[in-house]
């Protein structure tokens, strides 16, 4: 989920975007091969290429990563806290999805 919601809609036309009001980017970093990219934070940059360069300086000054993803914050669709029940409550009802739901006789091993 993006930490930073864009507070003002991006202007539709590329020309009328204010020179200094750079879009917000979410930064994801893979700390080492074998691990997934993880959200590290966000930053402002005029385009993806600059976002990548800035992310390198802001978030990986001490070998924190081997790979960086930058994603424009406005391109992320996030669930909202209000939907928590609708989205996640059903999972709590289905206790039979967990192995602990099933009794196992003491005599039976390796199950």
């Amino acid at each position: 989920m993006p930490e930073n919601e864009p507070f003002e809609k991006q202007p539709d036309s590329l020309e009328d975007r204010h020179a200094t009001d750079w879009p917000l980017w979410e930064i994801f970093i893979r700390s080492q091969n074998g691990l997934a990219h993880k959200h590290a934070g966000s930053l402002h940059a005029p385009d993806a290429e600059m976002a990548l360069k800035n992310a390198r300086d802001v978030y990986t000054r001490r070998n924190e990563g081997v790979s960086i993803w930058v994603v424009r914050s406005s391109d992320i669709t996030a669930s909202s806290p209000g939907e928590k029940e609708i989205l996640f409550e059903p999972a709590n009802n289905k206790v039979y999805r967990y192995p602990g739901f099933y009794p196992v006789p003491d005599e039976v091993k390796n199950l």
């Binding site: 930490e3 507070f7 003002e8 200094t20 917000l24 930053l43 802001v58 000054r61």
Partner: peptide, 26 residues
């Protein structure tokens, strides 16, 4: 130089955190 660069980074992490509360960086 590395220390001062870190401080710039600290400023950016914190501006980012403040922005999540609805204030623009500018």
């Amino acid at each position: 130089l590395a220390k001062v660069q870190d401080e710039a980074g600290h400023g950016l992490y914190l501006y980012g955190a403040a922005e999540t509360l609805g204030i623009r960086r500018d």
